[in-house]
Design a protein around this nucleic acid. Structure first.
Lengths: 209, 209
DNA sequence: TACCGTTGTGTACAGTTGTTCACTTATGTG
DNA sequence: CACATAAGTGAACAACTGTACACAACGGTA
């Protein structure tokens, strides 16, 4: 007699994905995870894996999609909550950090994927970052905060902003999630990076002429 | 009769390390490499591994040390060849890119290690980057290129510079090594990033007062 | 020359891996 | 209700893994 568990449709799929994330969150690298390991963590029999994914790379790709959702939520919150332009950067960095804390495993996965072994995952994450940068550029245009910059220069600036924040991710994931002191240091530093970049953008090319 | 190969002392050790690097250079992630796999690539029997390393993490740590040498060579070359201050950034980025091309596997390893699973390797690479940033700050002070900045602000600026260049690493490693067009795009973009940062540094705090 | 520590070799073994197969059970549509 | 399909299960396999052991050849030193 086979005891088949009753589950909602797609529940095992979710279990597998979050099992992989859990392992990544525990410090394991996604590239080193095996199918059996993930199914074990998910409390599911190994063969179930193949019902939902072709292999680990496939699972990784689907995680990238979910990561996209997380990033979009973050962006939406930033858009809604950053009202006054003068505190724009402090608040944005704050929102970023709190989202990282709330979805630590996801961001572990993101940081790993940037130099990961699956080209597809890598390209997926990179494209999420490009999207993020272009949305940021739109916002700045809309808020009339960068009217002296050409489109190309604004894109470059936003690209650099996104990269700097993304790099802070590795700092953030390197400290304990409850180490408030260190986290505050990172928050300050990241904010100053962004301020420096925008000071640069404000004077960009205005001196070469 | 056991045919023992004659090798220079430490030759097998080197073979193992460069075998790991080779695999990483082929797109594999360091965290997913196994002892047997590395020894196979090195053309050595699995048990030999333990004569030189306690486990793969240990090998990784020793690779970080060698990476340090590569980075120092790069820094030295930059110091010798960058003579005129106005081309400082173009030339530095150029030297960086050519070193990456010449030691591709090493830089693959570096990019992976930043979000790798061994905390020790991670910390090692991070510390190499800190060292690099502080040396850069020294140089700028020495060349009297940043006299209006406080020590703290100069450190921050150099930190941001190093991070931006390091992030370009992932771009660089993502394109084929002979894709000259793309590489030139990356070179241009990275250079502009640095210029933007230094424009920011030049006007830093001069406006808040 | 005799000796010893280092390094390389071959064999062995238990544990884990990815994947296939034949099966049972649940679910939703006609 | 019947039935096709999706989603779960367990057993099995060959291949591979890390690691241990005993042994052999080398290099240097006394």
């Amino acid at each position: 007699m086979v005891e088949k568990q009753r589950r909602k449709p797609g529940e095992t799929r979710e279990k597998l994905m979050s099992a992989a994330l859990t392992l990544v969150g525990k410090g394991r690298h996604f590239a080193s995870l095996g199918i059996r390991e993930v199914t074990r963590q998910a409390g599911v029999v190994p063969t179930s894996f193949y019902r939902h994914f072709r292999n680990m790379d496939d699972l990784g790709l689907q995680l990238v999609d979910e990561l996209g959702l997380v990033l979009r939520r973050m962006m939406r919150e930033a858009r809604n909550n950053v009202l006054q332009a003068d505190k724009l950067m402090e608040e944005s960095v704050g929102i970023f950090i709190s989202h990282v804390q709330a979805n630590r495993s996801f961001f572990f996965f993101m940081a790993q994927g940037l130099a990961g072994e699956s080209r597809a995952v890598q390209e997926g994450i990179r494209s999420e970052m490009r999207f993020f940068a272009s949305e940021l550029a739109n916002d700045l245009r809309r808020l009339r905060l960068a009217e002296h910059l050409s489109d190309g220069d604004l894109d470059m600036t936003c690209d650099l902003v996104v990269r700097s924040v993304a790099f802070s991710l590795t700092d953030l994931l390197g400290v304990a999630p409850d180490d408030d002191y260190q986290i505050d240091q990172i928050r300050r530093r990241t904010t100053r990076f962004l301020q420096l970049i925008f000071v640069g953008a404000a004077h960009w090319k205005s001196e070469g002429t």
